[in-house]
Simulated assay, not measured.
Amino acid sequence: MRTKIAIVSAVTAIPLALSACGSSGDSAAADGTKSIGFISQAPRNDGGFTQFGLAGVNAAIEADKNLKLSSIVDNAANSQEQIQGLESLATKNQIVVADGASFNKAVAVVAPKYPKVRFILVAADLDAYAENVTSVTAAVGYNAIVVGAVASAHSRTKKLGMIAGLEVPSTTAWYHGMVQGAALENPNTKVVETYTGDFNDVGKAKQAAEAMIASGVDSILSDLDSGSRGVYQAAGGATSPTDVYDVFALHCDSSPHIIGSGVVSWSDILKNAVADAAADTLPAGAISYGLGTGALRFEFCPGKGTPEEKALVEKITKDITDGKIVADKGVLLPKPAYHFEQR
């Protein structure tokens, strides 16, 4: 599960209606206020990635009285809904946040029609440079290397698993990172992957986890939102000890089987990006946040992790930030051909 946070503020949803190009509210209001539109594939209160990103937007607004969140489109699941939602938001806002990797194609279609609107694409890059688009990603593969090493050290069967909703670059990065990290700790450790097709389906997640456990997997990384509850349930019902690792945030109270998490503070990343966009200092192109920024890190749940495992976390993290460990193929998102900044 990606995070559990309280809803920061209430906003009004807008209908998914196609709006005419050229009518964009692309300049600040007379009082200097800049409005922000937010669009996501999942529900805004999904208890996970979407809610985490929305919290970052709200944090930027709380820090700047000249910003306001005017509208949200959530549950934009297919390409038509995403394009229509982006069109509708771009007519009313100076900044539009597209929260999720699946929006890269829709943003590429809509952004050129609204050259004065700043689009922030989260967790994916565009295929080509756009002057009014900045993609912000987290180098989650680095976190996954640490998770893989820890999980391998803690595993009894040396069989690890990763469960995610959709097979997109940001989720496969968790898998490839786990493979690399596990091999660093023990070259004989195996890692398997499963994609349920839904980040929030508890039943599918439980079935996937049960299948893994039946095959001998004793440590599972859950790259899910509310669907993680299914993984916790499967671990709780297993006849043999099964460990769980979360992504993005710690959920130690959710299950006694959780060892730790590859924490990614999307809230901090979005707060930073929105604040820079409001100040007109956000560069176009792509920005990736890594372990050196503090936005990514591995954390154990209280009372979990041996001294040796904690020392392993420190060593792997330091070796990555010092450049001694270079990411294998698939661990990081491919660098775009245009302006790219690794932070």
Rank of each mutant, 00 (worst) to 15 (best):
Y142D: 15
D127V: 12
N104K: 14
H154M: 04
F199A: 07
S170M: 13
M162V: 15
A208I: 13
A128T: 15
G161P: 07
A111E: 07
S155R: 07
V107W: 01
G197M: 04
G165C: 05
L160M: 10
G181T: 14
G148V: 12
E167F: 01
L184M: 13
A139P: 02
V96K: 07
H154N: 13
K105S: 15
S170P: 01
S152Y: 10
A98S: 10
V110G: 04
M162G: 00
V110W: 02
P187M: 04
V107R: 02
K158I: 03
A153T: 05
A111F: 05
V140T: 15
K158W: 02
A138E: 14
K116L: 09
T137C: 03
N132E: 10
W174A: 00
A208W: 12
V179P: 01
V168Y: 06
A182D: 10
I145A: 08
D99F: 15
A130Y: 10
K204A: 14
K116A: 08
F199L: 10
L184Q: 14
S152R: 06
A138N: 11
L126K: 07
M162P: 00
A138D: 11
V179W: 01
K158N: 14
H176M: 05
E167K: 14
T171V: 13
M162L: 11
S155I: 12
M178I: 12
P115S: 05
A128W: 06
V109H: 05
V150N: 08
T194W: 03
V202F: 08
T196R: 09
V122T: 13
D127I: 05
M178S: 00
G181A: 09
A208P: 10
Q207H: 06
T137W: 01
N143T: 15
W174G: 00
H154S: 11
N143I: 03
A151Y: 07
A144R: 02
V97G: 03
Y142W: 12
Q94C: 09
S102Q: 14
D201E: 09
K113A: 09
V192L: 05
M178H: 00
Q94K: 13
P115H: 09
Y175K: 03
A108S: 14
G181E: 08
V110P: 01
K113T: 13
V192R: 04
D198G: 04
G100W: 12
I145K: 06
V107A: 03
K206H: 08
N104P: 02
